[in-house]
Structures are given as structure tokens and as C-alpha cells.
């Protein structure tokens, strides 16, 4: 029923996926800012070391509320129907994102610290 080719296929995709996950995990570094984007445009940025609650509102009454606490950004409520962004875990690593697809809102961690070895080399 299961052919050898099936197992090879499963193995290859698993290796690619897990390899990429490992690579991303090893290259994690904390970011310093969060960029708030709507419809692909940056609306505002916040430093991660300030604790705030902010609500971003769209044209058609759509809104998303998020907090920054102890350097972690978390979506706490939103007007979207699926609430996937609200259930998303909080983020604080460079390039991590929380996306609310229905409202086209994206929170992105930016400004990761420079690699210390690079700074020495400079």
C-alpha cells in the first residue's frame, strides 16, 4: 500500500522543514522594536522596552489591539471573525510576526541586535 517512493517523499519534505526550523531557531535574536503595518504600509513603530497597549483602526471599522509587556508583543483583541491573531503566541524575536489576515494587519519585530562578532570585525 505504502510505496518506497512515498517514504522518500515524506523523509525529504520532513528534512527540509525541520532543517529550516532549526536554522531559524539557531538564528533567533531578540528584536528591539515592533513595526505595525496595515495593508503593507508601516503605520507606526514602538520600542519593545516600553509597556503599552495600542489599538490600530482601519478604514472600515476594523481594529486590532495589542500590548507590549516585558519586551513581548501580544495581540489581545481584534474585530476579525477568526481571532487567529489573538490566539497567536506572543512574539519578541527579530523578524517574528503576528498577522491578522482579515484586517490585513501585521505586527513585525524589527531591529535585532547586531551580531557581536560582526561588530568586532568592523
Amino acid at each position: 500500500m505504502v510505496k518506497k517512493n512515498d517514504l522518500i517523499l515524506i523523509g525529504v519534505i520532513l528534512i527540509i522543514g525541520i532543517g529550516a526550523l532549526l536554522f531559524m531557531y539557531l538564528n533567533n535574536e531578540a528584536g528591539s522594536k515592533v513595526s505595525v503595518q496595515m495593508n503593507g504600509e508601516e503605520i507606526i513603530t514602538f520600542d519593545l522596552d516600553e509597556d503599552i497597549t495600542y489599538t490600530i483602526e482601519g478604514d472600515n471599522g476594523a481594529w486590532n489591539t495589542f500590548t507590549i509587556k516585558d519586551g513581548h508583543v501580544d495581540m489581545i483583541d481584534a474585530s476579525c471573525p477568526d481571532k487567529i491573531c489573538v490566539n497567536h503566541k506572543d512574539i519578541h524575536y527579530d523578524h517574528e510576526t503576528i498577522t491578522c489576515l482579515p484586517n490585513q494587519v501585521l505586527l513585525e519585530i524589527i531591529g535585532g541586535e547586531e551580531n557581536p562578532i560582526d561588530s568586532i570585525a568592523n
Binding site: G19, M24, H95, T99
Partner: peptide, 11 residues
């Protein structure tokens, strides 16, 4: 969302 970073969800 016009942000290619979403591709980090792919792995």
C-alpha cells in the same frame, strides 16, 4: 499582507 516574511511560517 504584502510582507514576504510570512514565508517563515512555511517550515
Amino acid at each position: 499582507v504584502s510582507n514576504p516574511l510570512i514565508v517563515t511560517y512555511l517550515p
